Amino acid sequence: MTTRESRHVGPTPAALTPAALRQLLGNGNAPRMLDVRTPGEFRTSHIPGAHNVPLSTLREHRAELLAHLDGDVVLVCRSGGRAAQAEQVLAEAGLANPRVLDGGMLAWEAAGAPVRRGGARWDLERQVRLVAGSLVLVTGIAGLFLPGVHLIGTAVGAGLTFAALSNTCAMGMLLSRLPYNRGPRADVRTAIASLRARS
């Protein structure tokens, strides 16, 4: 699931396969890679040379970031959903032809591509599954003794259905703000300094 965003409208974002990105990185034509996952997810594993600019930071500071980006930008997330939303944000801000890593980090790692790893953390989608599942389980059991409590689980189920249909996730957005998922790299000044250093 992805953090809450408006649905992508218009053409499908240009995708770049892991093999094509590896070739670009290997022949010296490396694009700017923006990893739009949470800082916690980024610290767990990321493509060497990628810059962490969480989706919420990218949206809020798109104009500032745009001044440090050229047209050769590849957006990365866990599976491609958040990166597609980031592509829409940047395209609307005026960046020409940003691309999305097809399949995200899941596809990159499955292809055996190089990854820089840190301490293990749960990715945002796994956290959403834990919280949603726990709410449904607890309210379902409590509903056996307290009439009406089970409706909380029903509301969670309705929210997850809406999240899937609209490619948004309010729970994911809220969880991304927890200290576990935040870190110093979420700061836009740090992201811009990182982009300047690689210019």
Rank of each mutant, 00 (worst) to 15 (best):
D35H: 11
L69S: 05
L65N: 02
L21G: 01
S56F: 15
P18V: 00
L75G: 02
I47A: 00
S45L: 09
A67E: 11
R37W: 07
R37C: 10
L55F: 07
S56W: 13
A20F: 01
L65F: 09
R62D: 13
G28M: 05
G28S: 02
M33Q: 15
S79D: 10
V76R: 08
R22P: 02
A30N: 11
L21R: 09
P54M: 05
G40L: 03
L75V: 08
R62M: 12
I47S: 02
L66C: 06
A50S: 15
L55D: 02
N29A: 15
T17M: 04
H61G: 10
R62F: 11
S79W: 13
F42P: 01
E60P: 09
R22I: 06
P39K: 10
P39D: 07
R32T: 15
N29T: 14
L24N: 03
A50F: 01
L34A: 00
H46T: 04
L25P: 01
N29I: 12
R37A: 03
L75W: 09
T38Y: 02
G26F: 10
A67F: 05
V74T: 02
L55W: 03
V76M: 10
A67M: 10
V53Y: 05
A63F: 05
G40I: 08
H61I: 04
V53W: 00
L34I: 05
D72E: 15
A20P: 06
V36W: 01
A63N: 04
G71E: 10
L34P: 00
G71L: 07
M33C: 14
A19N: 07
A50W: 03
V76S: 08
N29F: 14
E41G: 12
T17A: 14
N27P: 09
V53I: 12
N52R: 13
V73A: 04
P18A: 03
S45D: 13
S79N: 12
G28C: 11
E64C: 03
P31S: 01
A30H: 00
V74L: 09
M33L: 15
S45E: 13
D72K: 05
T57H: 00
A63I: 13
P31R: 04
R37F: 06
